[in-house]
């Protein structure tokens, strides 16, 4: 299931906001090819950790290693081309752009076509076929021409996944892919994430234990910015400390 080489590693990663430690001395190891879930109560530091991994925040101390390379302190636009893509907890799209335009924009990013101010925008349609393939993968092919703002919530989340996939990342970071979804959408998203996770490394944050249980090979439980427990889902689920700290109130 998971090989021994870590694709992502953090060493004593710490982020302080005015004396408040949102993330504290976190040593996280994510093996290549695994699906790794981060769980924990609200305010445990999951999203902060995500922002540290993707360069949206700079750590106060500690380091982040991707494929053995130190990427601490790099900007998001420097991290993305290395093969790390993320989705956002709060849907983050270009409301007026069509779905196809979203994907063309993502696919054009590594080619440098975005710098071409002297060429017609129709040149971006060289990515049209690949865009449609990706939209098809997430079940949105028939909505390719509509602006993202007109999509239903679950469809927007699916579009987020397609955009992340467009970057063909080695590491995919999903911040609450099922946040705010109904049961039906959740099951559809689980199937979808399972499909796109094959051949990739995925780190996901989710509150829903059903989602975590169906997807994750390994689970890291965070509490107050620190790692409370780590292991396979079934092991973590029965861990006394975890039950009292988190699952106990939410899951019995």
């Amino acid at each position: 299931m998971s090989s021994a080489t870590p694709l992502l590693e953090t060493r004593s990663l710490t982020k302080e906001f005015r004396g408040f430690r949102a993330v504290s001395e976190v040593d996280l190891t994510v093996s290549e090819g695994s699906v790794h879930a981060l769980v924990g109560p609200n305010g445990a530091g999951k999203t902060t950790l995500f922002n540290l991994l993707t360069g949206f925040l700079t750590p106060s101390s500690g380091s982040v290693l991707f494929d053995g390379r130190d990427i601490t302190g790099l900007a998001p636009e420097q991290i993305a081309p290395l093969g790390i893509a993320r989705s956002f907890q709060i849907t983050s799209l270009f409301e007026q752009m069509t779905l196809r335009e979203h994907l063309e924009l993502a696919l054009a990013s590594p080619t440098g076509m975005g710098r071409q101010w002297w060429r017609p925008v129709s040149r971006m349609s060289v990515f049209a076929d690949r865009s449609m393939e990706l939209l098809d993968q997430v079940g949105l092919a028939d909505r390719a021409g509509v602006p993202a703002g007109s999509l239903a919530y679950g469809q927007k989340r699916a579009l987020e996944l397609a955009i992340a996939l467009a970057l063909d990342p080695r590491l995919l970071l999903l911040d609450e892919p099922t946040a705010g979804m109904g049961i039906e959408d959740i099951d559809r998203t689980i199937t979808l994430v399972k499909r796109i996770a094959s051949g990739r490394t995925v780190v996901l944050v989710d509150h829903n234990m059903h989602v975590v249980g169906s997807l994750a090979d390994r689970v890291t439980v965070l509490q107050a910015g620190q790692i409370l427990a780590e292991g396979p889902y079934d092991e973590v689920r029965t861990d006394e400390r975890v039950i009292t700290a988190y699952l106990g109130s939410a899951h019995v």
Binding site: P76, E77, A80, R86, F88, S92, F94, S109, G114, I163
Partner: peptide
């Protein structure tokens, strides 16, 4: 923020 995450 989204543009940056796409690598721009």
């Amino acid at each position: 923020a989204r543009a940056r995450a796409l690598g721009y």
